[in-house]
């Protein structure tokens, strides 16, 4: 077991005494079984011991499902491994003596709060604008009343697997939120329960997305490549179809 990896970390610091700059830290004795965030814990314990400000970064479940962790690691959202959140990345993928550059997710709609922490509440507002089914508690019919074809349900699930982390935005050169928004539009449009409001939903969610200051999608597909849940850009195509159909329909009714 390797317990003596030495690493150089270049970390973006912003807030407190830092105006917004990369600061270099040296770390010895990194164990290959540590997770990336445990490596940052070790750094912070070291900083605290030296009476320095610890590096602020967000994290919670540390098992790849809550979507709280972020980080751009060596230029890649959630680091180098495919289909992996930062909290699931382990140090066995790094070598002794390496330098790692760590930045926050950067996007106009994700303002930096401190160091590596950004404000992603714009995602909540997109959902609030229409990312749901209008059903009150108690109004539901029996769960098996509407059979849903297995593959269709599976496809809805694939879209619903989005954890709302924002890596798609960070990976996109335009900082577009199309993958996130389209995943929710697809999840609900693919299910009979979401069918009734599908037109209204896509129009309102896209309008809110634009209002939040996210960029336009130009089909770079970096979002799909970096998405830790491997959400497909096929969802963006579906959103575009839904959007055009809904726009035409609303023009006709107007």
């Amino acid at each position: 077991m390797s317990n003596n990896m030495r690493l150089t970390l270049k970390i973006w610091r912003q807030g407190g005494k830092y105006k917004g700059e990369f600061v270099t830290y040296k770390l010895d004795n990194v164990n290959e079984h540590m997770s990336f965030l445990e490596m940052l814990d070790v750094l912070n314990e070291q900083l605290i011991a030296n009476r320095e400000e610890p590096v602020a970064f967000e994290h919670d479940c540390r098992e790849g499902i809550c979507g709280t962790c972020s980080l751009v690691i060596d230029g890649r959202a959630h680091g180098p491994m495919k289909g992996t959140t930062t909290c699931q990345l382990h140090m066995r993928h790094y070598k002794d003596g390496e330098t790692i550059v760590i930045e926050p997710f950067r996007a106009k709609a994700f303002p930096v709060i401190r160091d590596l922490v950004v404000d992603r509440s714009s995602f909540d507002r997109i959902i609030q604008s229409g990312g749901y089914v209008n059903v009150n508690t108690g109004q539901a019919q029996d769960a098996n009343a509407i059979p849903i074809e297995k593959d269709q349900a599976g496809e809805a699930f694939d879209a619903a697997a989005c954890i709302g982390c924002g890596a798609c935005v960070a990976a996109c050169p335009n900082a577009s939120a199309m993958l996130f928004t389209s995943a929710k539009v697809s999840h609900l449009a693919l299910l009979p329960q979401g069918m009734v409001e599908r037109k209204k939903r896509v129009l309102e969610m896209v309008a809110q997305m634009d209002k939040e200051g996210f960029g336009k999608c130009s089909n770079v597909t970096a979002c799909e490549a970096e998405c830790p849940k491997e959400i497909s850009v096929g969802n963006i195509a579906r959103l575009n179809r839904e959007y055009i159909a809904a726009s035409l329909a609303s023009e006709t009714t107007n």
Binding site: Y132, V133, V135, T137, G138, Q139, A140, Q141, D142, A143, N144, P147, I148, E149, K150, A153, G154, A156, F157, A160, H187, L188, L191, Q193, G194
Partner: peptide
């Protein structure tokens, strides 16, 4: 039992079998 009904109505994509039922 009502919880499952409610969740399905919200669009929770529970696992289904080939007949389309839960």
């Amino acid at each position: 039992t009502a919880i499952i009904d409610q969740c399905v109505a919200q669009g929770v994509p529970f696992a289904r079998d080939y007949g389309g039922l839960l």
